[in-house]
């Protein structure tokens, strides 16, 4: 069983793509970072919360045939690196999609889906996946 707290503390990022932005250099970070690796000391105290765009385009993708146990019911399933409309690359699953019609450049949007669960009696983990943008 994975740690309940570990998943819980990531809820803002997992549910709502909450990242951060360095007001010193303008860089957007997802997942959120409190320390700007570009500005380092100059960015201390200037990294603020930032909501990453929930729409974007497929930058690259793959259809997974050998899946982790938690995703057995989903396989084969697609994953994508999505470039959000504000330029952030996010790796996630791409669901509700015709696997043979995925293309680089395809518009997608983030939805909330089940990622996995700690067995039949443990906590269910929810997080973002992408779907084709209707």
């Amino acid at each position: 069983m994975s740690s309940v707290a570990r998943e819980w503390r990531e809820i803002p990022g997992r549910y709502n793509l909450k990242g951060t932005k360095c007001e010193n250099c303008g860089s957007i970070f997802f997942p959120a970072r409190d320390f700007c690796p570009k500005c380092r000391r100059a960015g201390i105290g200037k990294v603020v919360p930032y909501n990453v765009c929930r729409t974007g385009k497929v930058y690259s993708f793959s259809v997974i045939h050998e899946a982790p146990d938690c995703n057995n019911a989903m396989k084969p399933y697609a994953v994508a690196m999505v470039q959000t409309d504000d330029g952030v690359l996010v790796s996630a699953q791409l669901v509700d999609v015709d696997l043979d019609k995925i293309e680089i450049g395809m518009p997608v949007r983030a939805v909330l889906r089940k990622l996995d669960a700690d067995g039949a009696s443990g906590v269910i983990h929810y997080g973002y996946k992408f779907v084709p943008n209707l």
């Binding site: 669901v95 939805v111 909330l112 089940k114 269910i124």
Partner: peptide, 16 residues
């Protein structure tokens, strides 16, 4: 529902 959908995800999508 897809295996990764349940009442939480359906309710969330509708609410969004």
């Amino acid at each position: 529902p897809s295996p990764d959908e349940d009442v939480v995800t359906i309710a969330t999508e509708a609410a969004r």
